[in-house]
Design a protein around this nucleic acid. Structure first.
Lengths: 356, 356
DNA sequence: TCCTCGGGTGAAAACGTTTACACCTCGATG
DNA sequence: CATCGAGGTGTAAACGTTTTCACCCGAGGA
């Protein structure tokens, strides 16, 4: 058995109430007793039992994070951002991914009841309705990259539309009249918004559009590879490819290289997300930069605010802006700046070292 | 206030003990009452309060995961593996990264006391001593990629030595007499083991070794870029570069390309980890494959066993084998198989879709 | 002198469970 | 018929906190 507050109280010659007051510094305690209690607690290696604590206070100092999957750099960045601010506020992180269907999400949601003070949820499967019916009554929640209806929830989204629009406008402005799109996963909200931005940019730029220019994809490298081959078979052949994310763009680059096409000479390529590797592929990949960890950090900030303010908290939806990062693959720049090298731009790397 | 067990008991016309028995199916309950209780519980949306539960049972159904950082694909893969098996056993995941120094780790360790049933720890800073003095008495723990002394702890390690040895032996066998090493981060255990493997392979293969062939690196792309430039300046110039991880190898490829060197023609390159992107860079990267998610999964299995068996559990240390993956960058194969394409090999991708 | 006030403290209730123990009722066994 | 065992159930203690309330004591104001 671990040492309890009673034990500390006994040894310090005070009541448990006083010890409790010291540890939460609530209520007045004389400087003398405070010191004595601290000394005893340290000697005994006392740590308050968090279960007992959260039983009585009904707070857990933990936030739950529900993700559709834990695959790839995107998610590790999100979690990183969340963890950073959670830790700064003294909160723990209860992470869960890998729920393939709605039922699994609902189970998970319920099993988190009582374990967390709030929830950050990112899921393409999840609409607001599934949340309202499964959330323990008014548990604060922040939606990440979810299609959101009305203002029933706090929500944070990447400006998918704006980013895609900007990139495609850029391509069109540099003379590309036929720009193919490699679409993201079917039911995915981000994918849909990026497609919307693509179409709007073509229209506003006066470029050609046709159904056949929009190629199927699922956000993975292999689908980008396949789609690029399809693009090459189109008649007339497009002069640029905009992929809905970088992984697919990299798959596409790989296919183009094998087909002997020069990039950007015969085919311009651009992606979305600006993953770290983007600047190290050949040719370096133009992309739409998204501060993913920032997304996580803000979501967490928002959640903690909601937890602390509870009733006063005003729900709102917000969009995270994106930024165009032009490198070699779109052929629109001289290639002087932003070369891979000793001082890469992008989110600063942590000092901590790791093996990959 | 949420609905409690008392409420359920009252409405079902039984005592709380019976309800408890139903929910834990411990003890005998007639089929009739069982059904009635389930019905009432469902109608009331009752979920047991986990704080109260773990207060009395002193179990939490959660495992803690302490990582040096949450950066990059390596960690997302580890967590993925852990999460998969944790979920299969009904455990939650309390994740924490971003502790830069030993003091932070210790704080974090202590603050997890009472919140988790066991700990998975991966940290270059952490030696066994720091654990023993800060862990709540005999909380089960599994060490991941940590230097481990004696058999005081369960530990899981990648076969860094073996993987590096195999790759470098391969290079040497194909005629490379001068093979440069881009080292990993200074104090990192994986880095040291890979270096050891490199040296042993050179020695056993009868190839040349000198201090100057070992170039500084820190596992990040940018350091690989820098180190490759240094390698080019060596006299005589090496004909192959072995990087301690793929990120640095990719940085090196980028530097070589800019310097106008052909890979693998004038310089062979190989990495370690086999991250997904490795097969999509130009030229595709030969690497040492590590089933990272498997590493996480096994660690979690091991931990849960330790939690459940408690006293009977036998501590042991284990090494996860690696596998050579030869692609274009080392120039040792004809290039027919393992081309980037519609059916990439490597760990199967999940069905779940994501935006990056 | 009496009252008030506030800093410092303790006793005890409450939080929502699990579980040891006791009880009852049957049917079977002696 | 007495005894036993077992299935089914309830009572109440325990888990380790926080927090309300009350108490004590000394200083200051009337």
């Amino acid at each position: 058995m671990a040492v309890t507050i009673k034990e500390v109280a006994r040894r310090a010659g005070v009541s448990v109430a006083t010890v409790s007051r010291v540890f939460n510094n609530s209520g007045p305690v004389s400087e003398e007793t405070r010191r004595r209690i601290h000394a005893v607690a340290k000697r005994l290696r006392y740590t308050p039992n968090s279960a007992a604590r959260s039983l009585i206070t009904s707070r857990t100092s933990a936030v739950g994070v529900l993700l559709p999957d834990l695959y790839g750099e995107f998610f590790s960045e999100v979690i990183r951002g969340i963890d950073r601010t959670a830790q700064a506020h003294g909160y723990h992180l209860l992470v869960s991914g890998w729920h393939n269907d709605r039922a699994a999400i609902e189970t998970m949601l319920r099993s988190m009841r009582g374990r967390v003070d709030g929830l950050i949820v990112m899921s393409p499967h999840l609409d607001a309705r599934a949340l309202t019916t499964n959330l323990p009554e008014n548990l604060p929640a922040v939606l990440l990259n979810c299609p959101v209806e009305g203002d029933a929830f706090d929500a944070l989204n990447i400006d998918n539309f704006g980013g895609a629009y900007e990139m495609v406008r850029h391509l069109v402005a540099h003379g590309h009249r036929r720009v193919a799109l490699i679409k993201g996963a079917e039911a995915n909200h981000d994918a849909q918004e990026r497609q919307r931005g693509y179409r709007a940019a073509l229209r506003d730029g006066g470029a050609e559009w046709s159904e056949s220019l929009e190629l199927a994809g699922d956000f993975k490298e292999s689908s980008g590879y396949r789609a690029a081959l399809e693009a090459l078979a189109l008649e007339p052949r497009p002069t640029a490819i905009f992929a809905a994310n970088d992984s697919m763009a990299i798959g596409a680059l790989s296919a183009l290289r094998e087909s002997g096409l020069s990039v950007p000479g015969e085919m311009a390529v651009a992606g979305f997300d600006d993953i770290p590797i983007a600047r190290y592929v050949t040719p370096s990949l133009s992309s739409v930069h998204v501060a993913i960890d920032e997304l996580g950090a803000r979501a967490c900030d928002r959640l903690i605010e909601a937890v602390k303010e509870k009733n006063r908290h005003q729900r709102r939806q917000e969009q995270l802006p994106t930024r165009l990062v032009l490198r070699d693959s779109c052929g629109c720049r001289d290639g002087a700046a932003d070369r891979a090298g000793p001082t890469p731009e992008g989110p600063a790397s942590p000092d901590e070292l790791h093996a990959m």
